[in-house]
C-alpha cells in the first residue's frame, strides 16, 4: 500500500515552496579550499534539491575525520558520531525510523581502519542507506598520516620512509562480503557523474556503497592532479541498467566500458584495477534481502509498548528492596 493511493493527488506536497540547494546548506564549510569534500557536499545538496527530500526526514551520519564534518553543513538532521561508528549509528536510526533517508559520510580511516568491522557487517545487513566513502587516501584532519588506502611508498608523518603496505581496496573488500547489493565508484572532479551515482545509490533499496576518490590539496596535492587533467585516466562503466552518461560527458570521457551491474564476477575484476580509474556502477542487485525487512511485523511500536518491554527487561536485573 502506498501513500499516493490514499491521499488525493492534489493534496500532496505543493511545489510553491520547493526547496533550493541553499535550503539544504547550513554553515559555511570549513574544509580547506579546493578540498574534494566540497564537491561531494554540493552533489548531495543538489541531489536533495532535485528529489525534494524533506529535511526533517533526512539524516546525515558521520564518524570522525575531515569528511565527517559533513552533517554540520547539511540543513537536515545529523549525527556526528565517534570514530569508526558511523555505520552502527546509521543502522540504529534506520531500525527505529525506517522511513528516514539516511546518508552516511565516512572517510578512508573512519570506515576502512577503526570502523572496518562495522563496515563488513553493515554490508551484510544490507540496510537501506546511502554510504559515501570519502577516500582521499590520507588522514587529513590530523595532518597527514597514512590511512589504509594510502598508496605504497607514500611518505607521511607515520611512514617517514614511505608506506610499507599495499593499500586496501575498498571496492574489492565490499564486493567480497556476503549480501553486498550496491557498489559504485565516483571521483569528485566529475560533478555530474558524482551526482548521478549518488542518485542511483539513493534509489537502490539496500546498502549503497559509493567510494568517492577525493582530492586532498593540502596534504596530497599531486595524487590525483594528473588524472584530473587527463580524461582518459577515467574509465566510465556504462550500461542501460547502470550509468548512462550524458552526450557531453561521453564526449569528454571517451574511455568507456559497457558493464552489466548484475555481473559480480566482472565487477570484482574491474574493482581490482586502479588505472584507469573505473567510475560507475560496479554491482547492483535489488533482490538481496534487507535486514530491516525481516523485522517488518504487524505490530506498531508505540511509546507504551516500548516502555512495557523495557520495564520487563530491566525488571530481570533490578534488585528491589524487600517489602
Amino acid at each position: 500500500m502506498t501513500t499516493c493511493n490514499l491521499i488525493p493527488e492534489c493534496c500532496r506536497h505543493s511545489g510553491d515552496d520547493a526547496l533550493t540547494v541553499e535550503d539544504y546548506g547550513r554553515a559555511l564549510p570549513r574544509w580547506c579550499l579546493g578540498c574534494g569534500d566540497h564537491a561531494i557536499l554540493a552533489a548531495v545538496q543538489r541531489f536533495c534539491r532535485d528529489e525534494q527530500l524533506p529535511p526533517e526526514k533526512t539524516v546525515c551520519v558521520s564518524g570522525i575525520g575531515c569528511s565527517s564534518r559533513f552533517p554540520h553543513y547539511m540543513e537536515t538532521y545529523g549525527f556526528h558520531g565517534i570514530h569508526g561508528r558511523a555505520l552502527p549509528i546509521a543502522e540504529g536510526i534506520k531500525m527505529a525510523r525506517p522511513e528516514l533517508n539516511v546518508f552516511v559520510s565516512t572517510g578512508d580511516g573512519d570506515c576502512c581502519s577503526i570502523g572496518a568491522a562495522h563496515w563488513i557487517h553493515a554490508i551484510r545487513y544490507n540496510m537501506d542507506m546511502t554510504v559515501l566513502l570519502h577516500d582521499n587516501e590520507i588522514y587529513g584532519l590530523t595532518k597527514k598520516q597514512a590511512s589504509p588506502t594510502s598508496p605504497r611508498g607514500l611518505t607521511t608523518n607515520t611512514t617517514p620512509r614511505g608506506s610499507y603496505l599495499n593499500p586496501l581496496n575498498p571496492l574489492s573488500a565490499t564486493l567480497g562480503v556476503a549480501n553486498v547489493s550496491f557498489v559504485a565508484q565516483a571521483v569528485d572532479w566529475i560533478p555530474d557523474i558524482l551526482h548521478e551515482i549518488i542518485r542511483m545509490a539513493y534509489h537502490h533499496k539496500g546498502f549503497s556503497f559509493v567510494r568517492i576518490l577525493q582530492r586532498c590539496p593540502a596534504y596530497l596535492p599531486n595524487t590525483f592532479e594528473a588524472r584530473v587533467k587527463d580524461p582518459s585516466s577515467v574509465r566510465l562503466l556504462t550500461h542501460e541498467d547502470g550509468l548512462v552518461p550524458t552526450p557531453a560527458i561521453a564526449r569528454v570521457y571517451g574511455n568507456q566500458e559497457e558493464h552489466d551491474p548484475l555481473d559480480i564476477h566482472r565487477a570484482r575484476e574491474i574493482a581490482s584495477v586502479s588505472d584507469p580509474i573505473p567510475v560507475g556502477i560496479l554491482y547492483r542487485d535489488p533482490a538481496v534481502p534487507r535486514y530491516e525487512d525481516s523485522f517488518d511485523s504487524d505490530r506498531t511500536d508505540t511509546a507504551e509498548t516500548t516502555g512495557t518491554a523495557l520495564e520487563r527487561e530491566l525488571d530481570k536485573i533490578t534488585i528491589q528492596a524487600s517489602a
Binding site: 540547494v21 579550499l33 557536499l41 554540493a42 543538489r46 572532479w189
Partner: peptide, 22 residues
C-alpha cells in the same frame, strides 16, 4: 565541471558566484 571547492569564491565572491547547482 565545477567541484564547488570555494577557491574562486574566496578570491572574489562578486566576480564569481554559484548557480542553482552550486
Amino acid at each position: 565541471r565545477c567541484t564547488s571547492c570555494e577557491e574562486c569564491i574566496k578570491i572574489n565572491n562578486r566576480l564569481f558566484a554559484y548557480n542553482e547547482n552550486k
